[in-house]
Simulated scan of single mutants.
Amino acid sequence: MVSDHDAATLIALDERIAILRSNLSELTEQAVAYSGAADEDLAAERMAQQQQLLDELLKQREQLAR
Rank of each mutant, 00 (worst) to 15 (best):
L58E: 15
E29A: 15
K59T: 13
S22R: 04
E26F: 14
Q60E: 11
M1K: 11
E29N: 10
N23W: 10
L13Y: 09
A8F: 00
T28S: 15
G36E: 00
R16Q: 12
L27S: 03
R16F: 12
A31R: 06
M1T: 11
V32Q: 08
M1N: 06
A12I: 04
R21G: 15
L53K: 08
L58K: 10
D14R: 11
L13I: 12
I19T: 13
R61K: 05
I11Y: 05
R66A: 08
Q50Y: 03
E56F: 03
Q60T: 14
Q50S: 15
V2P: 03
K59G: 01
L64K: 00
L27M: 13
A37R: 02
E40I: 15
R21H: 06
L57I: 05
R66W: 00
T28Q: 15
Y34I: 11
E15M: 06
D6H: 08
L53Q: 14
A65G: 00
E45Y: 05
E45P: 04
K59A: 15
D41C: 10
L58C: 11
L64I: 01
Q30K: 06
A43K: 05
N23P: 04
I17D: 11
D14E: 11
S22P: 04
L54G: 15
Y34R: 12
T9A: 11
A44Q: 13
Q52M: 11
T28G: 12
S25K: 09
E15H: 07
G36V: 02
L57A: 12
V2Y: 01
V2T: 09
L64V: 01
V32M: 07
L42M: 13
R66H: 02
I17Q: 10
A7W: 00
L13D: 10
Q50V: 02
T9E: 15
I17R: 03
K59Q: 12
A44V: 15
V2I: 14
N23A: 14
E56G: 08
L27T: 09
R61H: 01
L24Q: 04
Q52P: 04
N23Q: 14
L27P: 02
A37Y: 06
Q60I: 05
E45M: 07
L64H: 00
E56H: 03
E26P: 06
